[in-house]
Amino acid sequence: MPTKARAPVTAPLKGRGAASYVPGRYEVATTHAEDDGWDSLQARDDTDPEPHPDTRVHEERARGIVSRNDSPDIGFGQSVNPYRGCEHGCVYCFARPSHAYLNLSPGLDFETRLFAKTNAAERLRAEFSRKGYRCAPIALGINTDAYQPIERRYRITRSLIEVMAECRHPFSLITKNALVTRDLDLLAPLAQQRLATVYFSVTTLDNRLSSKMEPRASAPHARLRAMRALAEAGVPVGVMVAPVIPMINDSELEAILEAAREAGAGAAGYVLLRLPHELKDIWREWLQLHHPERARHVMSLVRQMRGGRDYDSAFGKRMRGEGPFADLVAARFERVRRKLGFGRLPPLDATRFRAPGAEGAGPQGELF
């Protein structure tokens, strides 16, 4: 079916990262609005974005909940995503193109048409009960943030952590939402058993830039405050400066790492801006709306880091890039990492796992 018509975008939408319904790559037909000389584009079309598009959540029952990968440049083999789509609206999110599989726009639909896997805990318990299941750490909330705003209502992430607590299953999570502190009553005792670690994604310390790039994520100072709360409760925490974007936030690399270290982060990493599939169009649109004076320069540097293209998906290059600018970022990161004494988070312990119903895998309270 054809996507919504796209008129020329002239202004950002308050509270949203994307500004239009960028069509997905699997659309059979798309429509594009053109002015016929009679100011036809001045009249509002039913398919144009609303000034304040609402968020709609579709509840779904997942058939499976654990995803597996063997990518050599990713440090986990299993992951669980409680939601599809993400209301944080991060304009740079590498997961946006996944909405194309749903015949939805990786642009505005990704952050306004969300899917909640209401039976996630049930499916996770079933996976742990499966004969022959081999315990390995699970990364929670990788494709989209497990603590995005709708988690306050649905509490699916908390229910998943409760299952992992019941079964003593190790997991890590990465988030940019201070809502994670709500679950300290679970995370702190699990961390004492070497069953949980948390990374915070911090893109900028500038509230104004954050509100444009990641409009519904927690403000930078709120993330640092949450990081400190977890660290003081004994939860191992790390920081990911992600993504690093030339001429937008790359100058903040050292400051972000220093602030995170002061807030209790024990490990650090970074990822360069990635622009797979439709994301390159969404990103260019954002640049033209917010930084038109430097848009060409930003994209020139991006292509220099990607072998002359907008993106290179090759393992080993997609996270770190190549070329002089990428090498400079790597050198700066390594210098400040050593200076601040960042190390590694404690390894997670998979030997404590007990399948549901097995001896020693009783109610959650028995873990503590």
Score class of each variant (00 low, 15 high):
A217M: 03
Y199L: 09
A326L: 09
Y21E: 09
A178K: 02
T197V: 09
V198A: 05
A242Y: 04
R25A: 15
T30G: 11
F128V: 03
K14A: 15
H221L: 11
S210K: 04
A191P: 02
V57F: 04
F315S: 14
A139R: 01
A146P: 00
M227N: 00
K176E: 02
L345S: 05
R68K: 12
K131P: 03
R294P: 03
I156S: 00
A178V: 09
P346G: 10
T47R: 04
E27K: 08
T31N: 12
E60H: 08
R344P: 07
A5Y: 07
E162I: 05
D70V: 15
D250A: 14
R303D: 07
V239L: 06
M1I: 11
D145L: 02
V244I: 15
L275R: 02
P236W: 07
S40M: 13
P72G: 00
H221Y: 14
R223F: 01
P243R: 01
A139H: 07
G362Q: 13
E60P: 00
A229N: 08
A222M: 08
R158Y: 05
R158A: 06
R84W: 01
S159I: 04
E262F: 07
A295S: 11
L140S: 03
D109L: 03
P189E: 05
H58W: 10
A5R: 09
K117E: 05
L275K: 07
Y83V: 06
Q42W: 13
V298I: 11
A121V: 05
T118F: 04
V28L: 11
Q364C: 13
A11K: 13
D48C: 09
L41G: 10
L272Y: 06
P8S: 14
R309D: 12
V9I: 13
A217Q: 00
H58E: 14
W38F: 15
K176F: 06
R25P: 07
A265K: 03
E127G: 01
S313E: 15
R294H: 11
A5H: 07
I282D: 00
Q193N: 10
D185S: 14
